[in-house]
Design a protein around this nucleic acid. Structure first.
Length: 105
DNA sequence: ATGTTGACCGACT
DNA sequence: GAGTCGGCCAACA
């Protein structure tokens, strides 16, 4: 408790930092864990990331697909995730039951 | 202030 | 599977 001083964005980024390499989380999952924000806010927060220490690439949508519309950003995210060991099936989707993050303990 | 646009989501057709 | 819709809410014009 007692973290109301910290902005929601900061808490979103802190939660995203907890996702281990080789795992992915969904926007809604992060929003739910952080509380007080919607999946849309998480997506918006990810879009503005410039900090190298934030593993923004490990956040994908609830269907297990990459949500970036820009083709360059899309292939960048996919490439990084594949390098981390994430598998994409023939329809470019990740099996969340295999690679989905279980959450912070 | 108002309107539009998103790296969303779930329900529906 | 593909579209559409309403709800969500910050950022921007």
């Amino acid at each position: 408790m007692g973290n109301e001083r910290v902005s929601v964005y900061r808490r979103i980024y802190d939660m995203v930092r907890k996702i281990p390499s080789g795992r992915v989380a969904t926007y809604g999952q992060i929003a739910s864990l952080v509380g007080g924000c919607s999946a849309r806010m998480v997506g918006y927060a990810m879009a503005g990331v410039s900090d190298e220490t934030i593993p923004w690439q490990r956040v994908i949508n609830a269907r297990g697909r990459i949500s970036i519309r820009d083709p360059n950003g899309y292939s960048l995210q996919k490439a990084i995730l594949e390098r981390e060991g994430i598998d994409f099936d023939e329809s470019d989707s990740v099996d969340l039951s295999v690679f989905g993050w279980e959450g912070p303990i």
